[in-house]
């Protein structure tokens, strides 16, 4: 290898500030075609705020949402069991997300908004 210095171009793509977004239920197969996948931008994502936390879970309604990955439903049942044994005053509601693990489920979020105080969502993996 000669000791001569060379200049070469950088092969990596440029950060675009464009991110993928959770898919809407109407088009679950959109995941296969990047052009149809909904996207979000850096600015839009920075604009999203986290909710204020509850003072306590005692007496509250907590939704246990399983997202469809293998083992998620069983895991959530165990979480429900833990609350019944350790925090009986917490009212738990079991739900499965419609569509597949990559799609949004606005109706479910709406239901939780109306009837629930908090949500535990899982299990990604």
């Amino acid at each position: 290898m000669s000791k001569k210095l060379l200049t070469v171009l950088d092969p990596k793509g440029q950060p675009s500030g464009i991110f993928g977004k959770v898919l809407d239920l109407k088009n679950p197969m959109a995941i296969l075609d990047p052009e149809k996948q909904p996207t979000s931008t850096l600015e839009a994502m920075i604009g999203q705020k986290m909710a204020d936390r509850l003072d306590t879970l005692e007496g509250k309604t907590v939704y246990l949402v399983e997202t469809g990955f293998a083992g998620a439903a069983d895991f959530m049942k165990e979480v429900e069991g833990w609350f019944q044994r350790n925090m009986p005053s917490v009212k738990t509601v079991m739900r499965s997300k419609r569509g597949n693990m990559f799609t949004d489920d606005p109706e479910l979020w709406q239901e939780i908004k109306e009837h629930g105080d908090a949500a535990i969502v899982g299990v990604g993996g």
Binding site: T7, D10, M50
Partner: peptide, 28 residues
């Protein structure tokens, strides 16, 4: 679900990855 939000959590920041240079530093 219960611990109050920290300052950091209140105003999320996504580190903006810097644009990459067109050329790499010359080398052997």
């Amino acid at each position: 679900l219960t611990k109050p939000l920290t300052e950091e959590e209140k105003n999320p920041v996504i580190e903006k990855r810097p644009k990459r240079p067109r050329l790499l530093p010359p080398d052997t």
